Simulated scan of single mutants.
Amino acid sequence: MNDSQLLRYSRHILLDEIGIEGQTALLQAHALVIGAGGLGSPAAMYLASAGVGKLTLVDNDTVDLTNLQRQIAHTTARVGQPKATSARLTLEQINPEIVIEALVERVDDARLAELVAAADVVLDCTDNFATRHAVNRACVTHNKPLVSGAVIRFDGQVSVFDPRGGAQPCYSCLFPQDQKFEDVACSTMGVFAPLVGVVGAMQAAEALKLIMGIGQSLAGRLLLLDGLHMEWTSIAVARNGDCPVCAGHHPPAA
C-alpha cells in the first residue's frame, strides 16, 4: 500500500482483526453486486469505501423518481439513466482508486456463471426469486460465497450461503426452487427506506468479513429484522440433504 492508501484505510488498519494483511486482501478482492437498487446502493458504497479492489455492478434497470426514496447511490439528476452506470459515478466519487465495472444487462445463466466464476464474493441485491435461485446455482457450481438480502415493507432479512464449507445450506435449502413463492414488489407493497440501508450495509459487512476471513459469518443462520419494533430474530438454517442444487456439491480440497 502507498501512503495515500495507508491514510485512507487507517481506521481499518487500526483494528487488530484487520490490520495491513486484511486491508491488502480487500484491495486484491473482486466483489460481484447483482442489483444496484435499494440494497445494492449501500452495499456497493460500503464495499467501495472499504477498498475492495474491483466491483462489478449488474443491473439492467434505469433510475426512476420513485427509486430515490431509498436507492441512495442515485440522484435526481440521473433519473432515466441506467442504474449500474449511475451507481458507478457515485462509487468513483467515493473511491477513485478502485476498479468499477458497470454492466447494464439482464444476465442469463451462462453469463451469470461467467461473472460469478470471476468474483471472490457475490452479493445478491435483487428482488425476485428467479434471479436469486439463478445466482445461488451459479455460486454453488463455482464454489463462491453468496451474501443474500431482502426487504419489503418493514421487514428485512440477510444471510450467507457459503458452499466452501461443504456442510452449509444454500439458498435453495431455505427457499426450495421447485416451490412457488410469490414475488412481492415494492411498487405494490411499499418499503421503509432506512431498512434497505440497514440490510445492504450488513451485506457489505458480511462480504468484507468473508474476503478477509475474519469473524463468524451468517452461514447457517437467517437474520430477520422487524423494523416496526426494531427486533432481530436469528433462525438456524440446516442443509437439505435432498436439495437438488447443493446435495451433490463437494467443494474442492484446500
Score class of each variant (00 low, 15 high):
C173T: 00
R11C: 07
V58I: 13
E206M: 00
F129I: 08
V147C: 08
N136A: 06
L68A: 15
L65S: 12
Y9F: 13
N240G: 14
H30R: 14
D120C: 04
H133C: 08
A253N: 07
K180N: 11
A119I: 02
D64W: 13
A36I: 08
G37D: 12
N60Q: 05
N2R: 13
R239L: 03
D64K: 15
G53N: 09
V52K: 14
L57S: 05
A87K: 09
Q71V: 11
G149Q: 07
V245Y: 05
V52T: 07
T85Y: 06
F175M: 01
A167P: 02
V63F: 09
S234K: 10
S217M: 00
L224P: 01
T90S: 06
N2M: 12
Q69A: 15
V52P: 13
L91I: 01
H250S: 12
L146Y: 03
S49I: 10
A167M: 07
K54A: 10
S159Y: 07
P194S: 14
G53L: 04
R239D: 09
F129L: 06
A247D: 00
R221H: 09
V196F: 11
L55S: 14
I98E: 14
Q93M: 08
A113Q: 13
A138P: 00
R70V: 06
G19D: 05
S86I: 00
H229D: 13
V245D: 13
C139K: 04
L195C: 11
N136T: 12
M202N: 05
A201M: 04
P163A: 06
M45W: 04
E182Y: 01
A87R: 13
V198I: 12
A219S: 14
G190W: 09
L224G: 09
L112Y: 01
A185D: 10
A31H: 08
T76H: 15
D155L: 02
S41D: 10
A113G: 15
F181G: 01
T62H: 13
E114H: 14
S234Y: 02
P169Q: 05
A219M: 02
A134N: 06
S148T: 05
G220M: 08
T56Y: 10
V107Y: 01
M1W: 05
E97N: 14
L146K: 00
A77F: 05
T141I: 04
V196S: 15
V116N: 04
M202P: 03
S49K: 15
V151S: 09
L32G: 10
E114P: 10
Q69P: 04
L228F: 02
